[in-house]
């Protein structure tokens, strides 16, 4: 969606587009419960890896998965955001370190861990789609969490687009333009967003009540045998785990 609004509203619309891109129409490319388990395992082992091999493998695997799942744009957005945030944490630490030159490798590894964990998880998520992630949680026996996540994933883009709409309406009536104004308007829109959020929660409560909600809304297809792709993904995740374990 293109917008002519200010920076803040453009940022919000872009963020909601990422969520929408991660919700493809097609079915997940592999079993959601297995895919989710592998995604969490790979991201977790990479987060604690002491060597660069596991991190690089995770990063490369993320690229392959994102390309396969045809969601490279969403993948790169998440990877760049995690790079930005991890740099924002590590660079100031380097500045205050007693010996910045000796702290640099550790800082580099910290950034690499964060980015590669985000990369591999997002790669799996792109292939599964939000629906697959939610189904995966349901398949792993976390029905209520799956349902809550399903609602969250539906409402985040709506919430972001609402906020972008409020901002665009305010910016259209503003005499001045600029970054400072965008962020001031964003802060002033918070109250309206809260009120709308309350109205949405009440509407959701009624929608759930109206259709006999009991908490068991998800059914997941269970298969006894793994496909070739699933075996390959399992082997890939185990190799990352092994690399991280032996600190290569």
């Amino acid at each position: 969606m293109k917008t002519t609004g200010g920076l803040a509203s453009r940022l919000l619309v872009s963020a909601s587009s990422v969520f929408e891109e991660l919700a493809p129409e097609r079915k997940p490319l592999f079993s959601p419960p297995l895919g989710l388990t592998l995604a969490v395992t790979a991201a977790a082992v990479v987060s604690f890896a002491k060597g660069v091999v596991a991190c690089t493998a995770a990063l490369a695997g993320g690229v392959v998965l994102a390309s396969w799942g045809k969601g490279f744009k969403a993948w790169i957005s998440v990877v760049l955001a995690s790079l930005l945030f991890s740099l924002a944490v590590t660079v100031p630490l380097l500045a205050v370190a007693a010996e910045p030159s000796s702290a640099a490798p550790a800082a580099f590894l910290a950034v690499l861990r964060a980015v590669s964990a985000a990369a591999v998880f997002t790669g799996f998520a792109v292939c599964l789609g939000w629906r697959g992630v939610v189904e995966g949680l349901g398949g792993l026996g976390m029905q209520e969490l799956a349902f809550s996540l399903g609602l969250l994933l539906k409402y985040i883009p709506i919430f972001l687009r609402d906020l972008a709409g409020i901002l665009a309406a305010r910016e259209a009536r503003a005499v001045r333009k600029g970054l400072k104004l965008s962020w001031t308007l964003l802060a002033s829109a918070a109250g309206e967003v809260l009120v709308r959020g309350y109205a949405r929660v009440e509407a959701l409560r009624m929608a759930l009540e109206a259709r006999n909600f009991t908490g068991s809304a998800f059914t997941v297809e269970r298969r006894a045998r793994l496909s070739k792709v699933e075996v390959a993904l399992l082997a890939y995740t185990l190799s990352i785990a092994a690399a991280a374990w032996w600190s290569i």
């Binding site: 919700a23 939000w130 629906r131 939610v134 189904e135 399903g150 609602l151 994933l153 539906k154 709506i158 949405r200 509407a203 959701l204 009624m206 929608a207 759930l208 259709r211 006999n212 909600f213 009991t214 068991s216 809304a217 998800f218 059914t219």
Partner: peptide
């Protein structure tokens, strides 16, 4: 409901239509 966004809360259209039946 008047606003469909208030009523639809499932990940896909199929899940939405199946929700009450599964309940």
């Amino acid at each position: 409901f008047q606003e469909p966004d208030d009523q639809l809360f499932n990940p896909t259209v199929k899940d939405e239509l199946a929700f009450a039946l599964r309940q």
